[in-house]
């Protein structure tokens, strides 16, 4: 998924390679790149499930406008992963409604 050599841009400036947790699994991404980019590079497409219909959602606008890509980041829900920079050891979780718990009935 990553572009190794771009005909016009050549290479992309990236931060250091860091580990992060996605739903408990260890993954790698580059520090400072949007969380959504690191996830997509790891093949993660589903960021959250909607509260009413449990529909999967992922990246849509990638510029922080549509809020479709929000996830639970370090315990905080509704974080726009397309504009939030990845940091080492970040804990990123799929969001269900506004919770990180699939069974949460309160939402």
């Amino acid at each position: 998924m990553r572009i190794d050599h771009h005909p016009i841009l050549k290479t992309f400036e990236k931060g250091k390679l860091v580990k992060f947790l996605y739903d408990g699994k260890v993954m790698e991404g580059y520090e400072g790149e949007p969380i959504a980019v690191a996830l997509r590079a790891n093949g993660v497409m589903i960021h959250r499930y909607t509260s009413k219909h449990n529909d999967p959602r992922g990246v849509f606008c990638a510029i922080g406008r549509c809020t479709d890509c929000v996830m639970v980041v370090d315990g905080e829900p509704n974080i726009r992963t397309c504009i939030t920079p990845l940091q080492e050891d970040m804990k990123i979780e799929t969001q269900y409604g506004i919770s990180n718990n699939k069974e949460d009935e309160s939402i």
């Binding site: 990553r2 572009i3 771009h6 997509r40 529909d55």
Partner: peptide, 30 residues
């Protein structure tokens, strides 16, 4: 960006053209 709703348009994998540009030209991701 304007959008066009159609059955399945909320599925992950449906993106704006701007999103494609952001991913590939800023972040080096297909």
């Amino acid at each position: 960006e304007k959008m066009l709703p159609f059955p399945g348009w909320t599925l992950p994998g449906v993106i704006g053209a701007g999103a494609a540009q952001t991913m590939m030209n800023l972040h080096g991701l297909k």
